[in-house]
C-alpha cells in the first residue's frame, strides 16, 4: 500500500488528516529538511512541499513571496527533490507531496521528473496549471513511476468534470475551497461542506480541502467533514517574519501543533 493510501486508511473514521505546506527552499535550502521534521513532530500526517516557480499564477501574495525567497536562495526543482531525499533518510513513513507549476517539470521532462520523484521518495504531485485534459503524457509517466497524480477541484468545476477529474486522480482529490488564490480569507465553510457532498458522490478517493484555511478555528470547522485539511499561506507567512532558523522551527512547530490539536476526533458513526 502506498504511503498516501496508508495514512488515509489509518485515519478513516477517526479524524481529518493534516497537510501543512511549505515552499521548498524557503527561506533557505538548508531549512527545508529541518522544517519537514518539525512539521511531523507537530503532528502533520502528510507534507506538501512547493517547487519554486517564477510566475506562480494561482498563488496569493504570501506564497508568491515564498517562491521569490526560495528562488533567491538558489532553490530549483532538482534541489527540492534532493531535500525530499534527505528527509527520507530519517523518515520513511510520512507521505510527501510536491506542488508546483508545469514549466519547470516540462523542462526537466515528464519521464525524468517522475522517476526523480520516485527515487527521492515523493509520493504524489500536484501541478496547479495542468488540468487532466492536458495531462495524458504526465499521468502515463507518473503511473509507471508509482507517483500519485493529484488534481484540483474547485467551486467552479461543472458536475460533468467532477467524474473525469476523479478518474484521472490517484491518492486523493484536492478541493479548492474558494474562488481565488491561495491565502484568501473569504472561506464559507457551509458552502464547502455542501459541495464536498457532491464531490464525494463522484469519486471514492479521499478529499482534502485547501485554500483559505488560516487558523485553528477554520481547520477545526473544515476538519469536521473533510478527509484532509491543507494549510499553506498561514504557515508560509511565518517564514517572512523570522530570521534565525531555530526560532522559525519552533514557531512553525507550535503553530502546526495548534492546528492539529484543533482537528476534531470523530466517532466512527459520524464519519461514514
Amino acid at each position: 500500500m502506498s504511503r498516501i493510501k496508508g495514512v488515509f486508511a489509518a485515519l478513516k473514521g477517526r479524524r481529518a488528516a493534516l497537510i501543512p505546506f511549505i515552499a521548498g527552499g524557503d527561506p533557505a535550502l538548508s531549512a527545508t529538511v529541518p522544517l519537514m521534521h518539525a512539521l511531523v513532530r507537530a503532528g502533520a500526517d502528510l507534507i506538501e512541499v512547493g517547487m519554486p516557480f517564477s510566475d506562480p499564477m494561482a498563488d496569493g501574495p504570501a506564497i508568491q513571496m515564498a517562491h521569490q525567497r526560495a528562488l533567491a536562495a538558489g532553490a530549483t526543482t532538482r534541489a527540492v527533490l534532493d531535500q525530499v531525499a534527505a528527509f527520507r533518510r530519517d523518515d520513511d513513513r510520512t507521505p510527501v507531496i510536491l506542488m508546483g507549476y508545469v514549466n519547470p517539470v516540462e523542462t526537466m521532462g515528464y519521464e525524468a521528473f517522475a522517476f526523480a520523484c520516485r527515487s527521492a521518495g515523493v509520493d504524489g504531485v500536484i501541478l496547479v496549471d495542468m488540468p487532466p485534459e492536458e495531462a495524458a503524457e504526465w499521468r502515463d509517466h507518473a503511473g509507471r513511476a508509482g507517483v500519485d497524480t493529484i488534481f484540483l477541484l474547485s467551486p467552479t468545476t461543472p458536475a460533468e468534470r467532477l467524474v473525469a477529474i476523479g478518474a484521472a486522480s490517484t491518492g486523493f482529490l484536492y478541493y479548492v475551497a474558494l474562488k481565488g488564490v491561495t491565502g484568501a480569507s473569504h472561506l464559507n465553510v457551509a458552502d464547502v461542506a455542501a459541495r464536498l457532498a457532491v464531490v464525494r458522490a463522484s469519486s471514492a478517493l479521499p478529499v482534502g480541502v485547501g485554500f483559505g484555511i488560516r487558523d485553528a478555528r477554520s481547520a477545526a470547522e473544515v476538519g469536521r467533514f473533510a478527509d484532509a485539511v491543507i494549510v499553506g499561506s498561514a504557515i508560509v507567512e511565518r517564514m517572512a517574519a523570522k530570521n534565525a532558523v531555530a526560532e522559525l522551527l519552533a514557531d512553525v512547530e507550535a503553530f502546526v501543533r495548534d492546528l492539529r490539536a484543533a482537528l476534531p476526533e470523530r466517532t466512527s458513526r459520524a464519519s461514514s
Binding site: 508545469v102 492536458e134 474547485s154 467551486p155
Partner: peptide, 22 residues
C-alpha cells in the same frame, strides 16, 4: 477543438478557470 495549434496552445490553467473558460 481543444485549442491546440499542433503541439502549441491548449488550456493550462488552475481548475478554477476551467469552467469559466468553457
Amino acid at each position: 477543438a481543444r485549442g491546440h495549434f499542433g503541439p502549441y496552445g491548449g488550456r493550462f490553467v488552475a481548475e478554477t478557470l476551467m469552467g469559466p473558460l468553457a
